[in-house]
Amino acid sequence: MSEWAMKRFWTNVTVEGAKDGHRVLLDGRRVKTPAKTDLVLPTEGLAQAVAGEWAAQEGKVDPMSMPCTRSANSAIDRVAPQRTEVAAMLAAYGDSDLLCYRADAPEELIARQAGHWDPVLDWAEEALDARLETRTGVMHVPQDGTALAALERRVHDFGPFHLAAFHDLVGLTGSLVLGFAAASDWRRAEEIWTLSRVDEDWQAEQWGVDEEAAELAERKRQEFLHAKRFFDLAGPSGVI
């Protein structure tokens, strides 16, 4: 991260429209990614969010306070050069989706999983043309290939910026279906995050809250909400 070890040297932060998108300028100079590529954003809204992060820096630049900048860097430097591989990795979540693996006891947990997760699977069947089937226990049972192919096509249609955000929407929840649900505004992002925590919340109710685990969960929640915001700022995906 040595490329971030800098102090604020600029006075003005502005946004410049261009043929290929929008750029952020520091005293008229273009911001570049860590790989020294021009930081070109797909929408003015995302460019303004990135510009706001640069404008807020005082003294030494703190990349941890610049989530949109970091996500944009990732989209350009890491996702774009290997978009096919990233999409394939995310699509693979469909075959072991969190929502499909159900407890066999106790009855209250079985009912809670069904009540929270079945509506999302029903939505995916209607909106994404993909019906994923539930299983009991943790042993892997392959899903129907037609359903997986329908989901995979949609993942591969995302551009680099949406795919960078989608990576976190899926990875943080462990669910391809919840990632699509968040991206498509099926429910509020907070509600979708809560759906991904059904098992953990159940355990906390039974055994009490583990403070360290709760702190980690909160960090992941914040990252999930940022990923949703970044996805939206990147503009219409054209996929969902």
Rank of each mutant, 00 (worst) to 15 (best):
P106A: 06
S71I: 00
L128S: 08
E85D: 13
R83A: 12
Q82E: 06
E133D: 12
A149G: 00
V61G: 07
R112V: 08
V86D: 00
A88S: 13
E133A: 12
A49C: 10
L109P: 07
A56F: 14
D97K: 05
R102L: 13
T84M: 13
S71K: 04
R70Q: 15
S65C: 09
L90D: 00
L128F: 07
V50N: 01
S65K: 15
L90Y: 04
A49F: 05
S71A: 15
I110N: 05
A103D: 13
P106K: 08
A147V: 07
W123K: 04
H140F: 13
S65A: 15
A130P: 01
I110C: 12
G145P: 01
V141M: 08
L99V: 03
H116Q: 14
Y93G: 01
A130W: 07
M66Y: 02
I76T: 02
A111T: 03
E53S: 02
Q48N: 14
A80H: 01
Q143W: 10
L132W: 04
P67C: 11
D144W: 05
M139L: 12
M66D: 02
W117E: 01
P106S: 08
G145Q: 09
A72R: 03
H140W: 15
L98D: 00
V50P: 09
R153W: 10
G94R: 02
E152N: 10
M139C: 04
